[in-house]
Each structure stands twice: as C-alpha cells, then as structure tokens.
Simulated assay, not measured.
Amino acid sequence: MLDGTLDDRAERLNQRYKHHAAIEVLRRALNDPDLGKVALVSSFGSESVVLLHMVSVVAPGTPVLFIDTQMLFQETLDYQLEVSRKLQLTDVRTIRATDREVALNDPDGTLHQFNTDACCDFRKTVPLERALSEFDGWITGRKRFQGGQRQELEFFEPEPPSRLRVNPLAHWRASDVQEYMAENKLPRHPLVAKGYASIGCAPCTSPIKPGEDPRAGRWRGSQKTECGIHFIGGQAVRAGANP
C-alpha cells in the first residue's frame, strides 16, 4: 500500500531527489516505496535511446512499453529491435490497439486525415492505459527544453487518479542529450539524419527546417502538440499549469 495522496507522494519524491542527476533519480526511485511499480514507456524515437540506456544500466529488467500504432515508420520498427538487442533489455512489451478496435475506429486507415485526436486516442492512449493498469507509475523522456506544456516539468508529477510520472531528463538541455549519446556510442534513429527531430507516426510526422522547433514536424499545420498520452487525467495541461 502506497502512503499518502498522489500529490503528497510526488512532492516527497521531488524533494528527496531534487539535487540528483538523471541516472541517480532512476537508480534510487526505482526502489523507492513512494513510487511503487513502474514501467518505462518508450517510442524508440529520436532521443529515446538515452533513457533506454540508463534503464539498461541501473535496472535492465524494468518493463519497457513500446506503443506500436501500426502506422509507424519501418525505420522505427527496425530501430526498436536493434536497440533492444544492443542494450539487452529483457522485458520489452509491444502494445497496440486490438484488431476489433482498429476495425471499429479506422477500418480503412484514414482516420488521421480528418481526426488526429481520435486516431491518437485509440491507437496510443487506450492501449497504453490498458498496459499501465498494473503499474503505479511510468517513466517518460519528456524535457523542459521541448517547450509547450513541458516547460515546467519536475522529476515527478501526479497523474490522477492513481499514478505518478517520472521525468528523469526534465532538466536536461538538448546538448546534454546529444553528448550522452555520443559518449556512450548509442545508435541513432536512422530518420534523424534525414531531418526528423521528433518522430511519431509516418502520416503525421515530417522533417523540420533549420531553426524550427524540434516538434514542428509533428502534426504540421495544426494546433495539435501532444498525442494524448502526456495529458493529466485526460486533459491537456498548458505551459505554466500546476497539475
């Protein structure tokens, strides 16, 4: 039984680890009773290998949840296999919408063309919620420098009604990410070399131009900035909000 409210637990954890480096946040928090049972959720995108590597070092048996939307780039699927083998991750779980959910919601694969929110919901949010039902928290790769609603991230944040999110890289700069990859000789997602800075589903992701925000290639031409799995209690949290 976890003690205290969700907000209390998040506050205790943030105070406890506020001066720790990212890998120590992971190393210690994964065994902290205030956190409980956690999984790492990974897109195996452009920067995902950093957290995957950290987990492989401190706790390689940590469950890794990979959301296969069935609309990913082939390069992402190949990269997921490559990284999992290289880092010797022992519990990678591929999660996806059921055949019935696809048949009901998007039988012809065109839902993303006219309702991206609905597409993300049934392909990402619903399968992830199902997979996370057995966990008390989950680890994300979100960072403050990514902007938008991420600008005031803390290491730990409540996700009502009952889960915590862990953001070990919250305070990292973009340069920190690149340096970590280089120092540890980690494989890069092949689409990065083609101008993709943030990689999601193939139909909704495009390369960015020099000087553009790293997430400008996601849902280009729309106001959409998040797929839904990073909302709080199902609601979008805007920059400056205090969930």
Rank of each mutant, 00 (worst) to 15 (best):
L186P: 07
Q70W: 13
L30W: 09
P107G: 00
A174F: 07
R142S: 00
K194D: 00
L89M: 01
Q113F: 06
A22K: 02
K209V: 03
K86Q: 15
M54Y: 07
A241L: 08
N105C: 03
E226P: 03
S48Q: 07
D34L: 11
E212T: 12
L13I: 08
P63V: 14
R27V: 01
R220Y: 03
D106Q: 15
V58A: 02
N115R: 05
T225W: 14
E154V: 04
K209L: 13
L35N: 02
Q70Y: 14
L164H: 05
A59C: 12
R16D: 12
Q235V: 04
D91M: 04
E129G: 10
E24I: 10
N14V: 10
S206W: 08
A182P: 01
A197S: 09
G45S: 07
V83Q: 06
P168C: 03
C119W: 11
I67T: 14
G137A: 06
R238K: 15
E159R: 10
Y79L: 03
E183M: 08
H19S: 14
H112T: 11
Q235S: 01
C201S: 06
R215C: 01
Q88A: 09
A131I: 12
A193Y: 06
L35V: 01
D34M: 06
R27F: 01
K209G: 05
P161D: 04
T69D: 02
E212A: 12
H19C: 07
S162M: 10
Y79E: 02
N31A: 15
V237L: 07
N31C: 14
L13V: 07
P158I: 09
E47F: 04
R12G: 09
H171I: 00
G195T: 09
Q178A: 10
H53R: 12
D3Y: 01
R12I: 13
E75Q: 15
T94F: 08
Q149R: 15
E152T: 15
K86S: 12
E212K: 13
N115Y: 03
L128C: 04
E82L: 11
E134Q: 06
P207E: 07
R220L: 06
A131F: 07
V92S: 02
S133M: 02
I208A: 00
P210C: 14
V83G: 03
Q149N: 14
K209E: 13
E212Q: 13
A97G: 06
P187D: 05
R215A: 01
Q149L: 06
P243W: 11
G141L: 08
E11P: 04
L81C: 03
F73C: 01
P63T: 14
L169W: 02
Y79R: 00
L77R: 14
F122R: 15
T225Q: 15
R100E: 09
M71G: 03
L51S: 09
D7Y: 11
D8L: 11
L111V: 11
D68I: 10
E24T: 13
E226L: 08
R100D: 08
K37H: 15
Q80I: 05
E157F: 06
D108Y: 13
Q15I: 02
L77C: 08
A193C: 04
E179F: 03
Q223N: 11
F114D: 04
E183T: 08
V50A: 09
G240L: 03
D136H: 13
R165P: 02
R144W: 01
A239D: 11
S56L: 12
K143E: 02
H19Y: 11
A197T: 08
Q113L: 15
C119Q: 13
S175C: 05
L87A: 04
G148R: 15
A59P: 05
E129Y: 07
E75V: 13
